[in-house]
Computed example of a mutant assay.
Amino acid sequence: MPSSQPARGAHPGKLALRDQLTTARNRLAVVELGLFARALAGHLLATEEVRRAATVAAYVSIGTEPGTSWLFDGLVAAGKRVVLPVLLADGDLDWAAYDGGAGLAPARHGLLEPTSRRLGVDAIGTADAVVVPGLAVSPSGVRMGRGGGSYDRALGRVPVGTFTCVALYDDEVDRAVPVEPHDRAVTAAVTPSGLRRF
Rank of each mutant, 00 (worst) to 15 (best):
Tyr98Met: 14
Thr22Gly: 12
Arg27Ser: 13
Gly149Leu: 00
Leu87Val: 12
Leu21Ile: 15
Ala123Trp: 07
Ser4Lys: 05
Gly63Cys: 04
Gly67Lys: 04
Leu84Glu: 12
Phe36Leu: 02
Thr68Ser: 10
Thr23Lys: 15
Gly63Val: 04
Asp171Lys: 09
Ser150Met: 04
Leu111Phe: 02
Arg25Tyr: 05
Ala53Val: 11
Arg157Lys: 13
Arg117Asn: 03
Val60Leu: 02
Arg143Gly: 09
Ala78Met: 12
Val179Met: 04
Pro2Glu: 01
Gln5Arg: 03
Gly13Asp: 09
Gly13Leu: 08
Arg197Asn: 11
Ser69Val: 11
Ala41Gln: 03
Tyr98Asp: 13
Asp90Cys: 06
Glu65Lys: 06
Arg81Lys: 15
Pro139Gly: 05
Arg157Val: 06
Val186Gly: 14
Leu35Cys: 10
Ala129Val: 03
Arg146Cys: 06
Gly156Lys: 11
Val121Ser: 14
Leu17Gln: 12
Ala54Ile: 05
Gly120Val: 10
Ala129Pro: 13
Ala41Trp: 04
Ala24Arg: 15
Thr162Gln: 02
Asp99Leu: 09
Val132Trp: 00
Arg25Thr: 14
Gly156Phe: 03
Leu104Cys: 03
Val166Cys: 10
Leu88Phe: 10
Asp170Ile: 07
Pro2Cys: 06
His11Cys: 03
Arg51Ala: 11
Ala37Ser: 14
Lys80Leu: 01
Ser193Thr: 13
Gly141Tyr: 03
Pro178Tyr: 02
Glu49Tyr: 00
Gln5Pro: 00
Gly79Ser: 13
Ala136Met: 04
Thr47Arg: 11
Lys80Gly: 00
Leu15Cys: 08
Leu93Asn: 11
Glu180Gln: 10
Lys80Asn: 00
Arg27Cys: 11
Gly194Ser: 07
Pro114Cys: 04
Leu35Tyr: 08
Gln20Leu: 11
Arg52Gly: 07
Pro192Trp: 02
Leu45Arg: 14
Leu44Asn: 14
Ala16His: 01
His11Arg: 05
Ala97Tyr: 08
Leu112Met: 08
Phe72Leu: 15
Arg153Ile: 08
Gly156Asp: 07
Val177Ser: 00
Ala107Trp: 04
Ala10Arg: 01
Gln5Trp: 01
Leu111Ala: 00
Val142Tyr: 06
Phe163Gln: 03
Thr22Val: 15
Ser138Ile: 08
Gly103Pro: 04
Leu71Asn: 01
Glu48Asn: 08
Trp70Leu: 02
Pro66Asn: 07
Ala185Gln: 05
Glu48Met: 05
Leu17Asp: 09
Glu49Ser: 02
Leu35Thr: 12
Val137Arg: 02
Leu168Ala: 09
Gly103Phe: 07
Leu33Pro: 10
His11Gln: 06
Glu32Pro: 07
Trp95Phe: 14
Leu111Pro: 02
